[in-house]
């Protein structure tokens, strides 16, 4: 087991956002956190690597409690791709190399460069290496953020809406690559996503958030239209294509 979350609770001042959250993640799995807007998907993701500090509960990464790890140790185990991509007049190469920050004590080593090179080639970013971030499109920036997380070489990837700015081809490329890396390197990834069908196409298991806690969880093929209807308040039909579930909205129903 790579991650175990026990009884996690988080609130912003007096506003309770998450409570009684329990789940665990195995190596080689992609987990997608789903749920309506504002339900706390991003908050949950940020709690997992101490960007936010939960008021209650324990998060164990490879059996170590992250409360007992300093932020640099956490960054060696968990990488994070934020939803919002900030820009600056820094080249894509330097921005990606920042992913080695937790591992570099003084000077960049040839080994760090080799790791950056491998990721840049895999993501087809070679032509963008010397382009400044503030001259890039949203999709290019997102790819750079993902590349930075990959060069961090952690056992757990957290991705907050990783494909929100990408077109269809880039979505397929990036999610296919993440899947390939998770399976090939036997690591794990947790993503938040709004697009149910893309999520179900690339993930292994889902977590539905509703009413501040996990409302349902399971393997992708276990998803039911009843569950989706209860969470989103929309009547849906689930059909299968090539073994993957596809959720088709039918009509609005009253929120459960």
């Amino acid at each position: 087991m790579i991650l175990k979350v026990n009884d996690l609770a988080f609130h912003y001042k007096s506003h309770e956002t998450l409570k009684n959250v329990n789940f665990s993640i195995q190596r080689g799995e992609i987990t997608v956190i789903l749920g309506p807007n504002g339900v706390g998907k991003t908050t949950l993701l940020k709690c997992l690597n101490s960007i936010l500090s939960p008021q209650n509960g324990d998060i164990l990464v490879k059996d170590k409690n992250i409360k007992q790890m300093d932020i640099k140790q956490i960054a060696k185990e968990i990488s994070y791709v934020a939803q919002k991509n900030e820009t600056a007049r820094i080249t894509a190469f330097d921005a990606i190399l920042l992913g080695r920050h937790p591992h570099i004590s003084y000077k960049t080593s040839p080994d760090d460069l080799k790791k950056v090179d491998a990721v840049i080639k895999r993501l087809n970013l070679s032509h963008l290496c010397l382009k400044y971030l503030d001259q890039m499109s949203g999709g290019e920036l997102q790819k750079v953020s993902i590349a930075r997380a990959l060069v961090q070489q952690t056992d757990l990837l957290l991705l907050d809406e990783p494909t929100s700015s990408l077109d269809l081809k880039n979505q397929a490329d990036i999610l296919g690559l993440i899947r390939h890396i998770v399976k090939g390197h036997h690591i794990a990834a947790i993503m938040t996503m709004h697009d149910l069908n893309t999520a179900l196409r690339y993930a292994d298991q889902y977590l539905f958030l509703k009413d501040k806690t996990i409302y349902g969880a399971g393997k992708i093929h276990e998803i039911s239209s009843k569950m989706v209807e209860e969470v989103y308040g929309v009547s849906v039909e689930i059909v299968y294509h090539n073994g993957f579930p596809i959720v088709i909205p039918i009509e609005n129903v009253k929120a459960a």
């Binding site: 932020i71 994070y80 934020a82 900030e86 330097d94 920050h101 570099i104 930075r148 997380a149 957290l158």
Partner: peptide
């Protein structure tokens, strides 16, 4: 300067890179 570069990428990204 490396910490400031990481913070240029946004607070959350910088924290994810191990910057306090």
């Amino acid at each position: 300067t490396k910490n400031y570069n990481a913070m240029d990428m946004g607070d959350e990204t910088a924290k994810g890179l191990g910057v306090k």
